[in-house]
Amino acid sequence: MKRVYKTTIEPEALKRYRLRFPEETWEHFRRRARHGYQEVKQQILKDQHGLCAYCEISIKLAEQEGEVDDFRVEHFFPKNATQEHGHNYHLDWRNLLGVCHGGSQPYVPDAQWRFSANKGDRSCDVPKGGKPISEIILNPLKIPGDVRIFRYVEHTGKIEVDDTSCPKYLRRKAKSTIRELNLNAPRLMRMRLAVIQKLEDEIAAELEQGAQLEDVLTLLAETCLVPDYEGRTLPFFSVTRWYLGEAAEKIISTSGDKL
């Protein structure tokens, strides 16, 4: 999970619908304002640089007939809390995040890589469901972006809380986030390990050609962490950030983009 810098400007179609129907549900908005729903999805994709707000896999849209987007809109505070709290979480722009299907959808692109028939291998909003856990997990919209919260085990891809850099007041929630969202699902560990191994190989290849390590790390940080011309970032941002260390922190602190 990384910081999400959500635009403060609510998509116009959502705003109009919310003001006209303040007690309506998200499901009704999707059905009755389809263009508005697409507008919301596009803004979420842009704000999140194309990454799942929880696990950081790339959000992949359907490319062929029979496929479905590996993308859905998640409500951080569950919709079923609306009545209890007297606030309509259904249509609250600040409550909407973009997430993957958490390994539960067999018809997404690259399903052989993204889908798992094992229910214990599901992650993100799948285990979260409508459970009242919003107060015990990290909110991607509120975590600091200028410090590293997580670290990874190099030979397994396992995610852990980075006690050397994660603020103390966030450590309990960070551990709870890993557990509740099942961010150490074997499927995710496998994908993160592939990212680590690719970085290792690229660094080794450049060093064999005589490049200086500092230059290689800086170049990789720029390539992997800064959004491309379409505004998308490579998957597993936080893995790359951790692996590249200070080179990554320099790019994040000096970039004009909110990474």
Rank of each mutant, 00 (worst) to 15 (best):
residue 257 D to F: 12
residue 147 V to R: 13
residue 142 K to I: 05
residue 102 G to M: 05
residue 97 L to I: 01
residue 156 T to Y: 08
residue 242 W to Q: 12
residue 171 R to Q: 15
residue 140 P to M: 01
residue 179 R to E: 15
residue 205 A to G: 04
residue 118 N to T: 12
residue 183 L to C: 13
residue 61 L to V: 03
residue 213 L to C: 08
residue 102 G to P: 06
residue 84 E to H: 12
residue 206 E to Y: 11
residue 56 E to Q: 03
residue 228 D to Y: 11
residue 152 Y to M: 04
residue 116 S to Q: 11
residue 191 M to N: 11
residue 25 T to C: 07
residue 65 E to M: 04
residue 54 Y to M: 07
residue 144 P to M: 10
residue 200 E to P: 02
residue 220 L to Y: 08
residue 197 Q to Y: 03
residue 50 G to L: 09
residue 166 C to T: 03
residue 110 D to R: 10
residue 221 A to P: 06
residue 248 A to C: 12
residue 163 D to F: 08
residue 82 T to F: 03
residue 237 F to K: 14
residue 156 T to K: 09
residue 131 K to S: 09
residue 73 V to N: 02
residue 137 I to C: 09
residue 32 R to T: 15
residue 218 T to A: 11
residue 7 T to M: 00
residue 259 L to K: 00
residue 127 P to L: 11
residue 122 R to H: 15
residue 40 V to T: 02
residue 80 N to S: 14
residue 225 L to Q: 09
residue 139 N to P: 03
residue 201 D to L: 09
residue 42 Q to G: 01
residue 133 I to Q: 13
residue 44 I to G: 00
residue 251 I to M: 10
residue 30 R to I: 10
residue 182 N to R: 13
residue 155 H to R: 15
residue 2 K to H: 07
residue 254 T to D: 03
residue 258 K to R: 12
residue 90 H to P: 01
residue 99 V to W: 00
residue 207 L to C: 07
residue 80 N to Y: 12
residue 209 Q to V: 08
residue 120 G to W: 13
residue 169 Y to L: 07
residue 141 L to G: 00
residue 172 R to T: 13
residue 166 C to E: 08
residue 11 P to H: 00
residue 50 G to M: 06
residue 143 I to F: 05
residue 8 T to P: 02
residue 251 I to R: 09
residue 212 Q to V: 12
residue 161 V to D: 15
residue 259 L to C: 02
residue 45 L to C: 10
residue 45 L to A: 15
residue 182 N to I: 14
residue 237 F to H: 14
residue 78 P to E: 08
residue 159 I to F: 09
residue 90 H to V: 01
residue 21 F to K: 13
residue 79 K to T: 13
residue 4 V to D: 01
residue 91 L to F: 04
residue 196 I to R: 06
residue 217 L to F: 02
residue 45 L to R: 10
residue 81 A to K: 07
residue 244 L to I: 05
residue 22 P to Y: 04
residue 120 G to A: 12
residue 183 L to I: 14
residue 81 A to H: 14
residue 92 D to T: 00
residue 24 E to W: 04
residue 86 G to V: 14
residue 233 T to P: 05
residue 97 L to D: 01
residue 239 V to H: 01
residue 201 D to H: 07
residue 42 Q to R: 13
residue 42 Q to D: 14
residue 79 K to A: 10
residue 238 S to F: 04
residue 246 E to L: 12
residue 181 L to H: 10
residue 255 S to Y: 06
residue 132 P to A: 15
residue 51 L to V: 09
residue 16 R to M: 07
residue 72 R to L: 08
residue 47 D to W: 00
residue 219 L to C: 08
residue 251 I to F: 06
residue 160 E to N: 10
residue 174 A to V: 13
residue 68 V to H: 06
residue 232 R to Q: 09
residue 193 L to R: 07
residue 89 Y to K: 05
residue 186 P to Y: 03
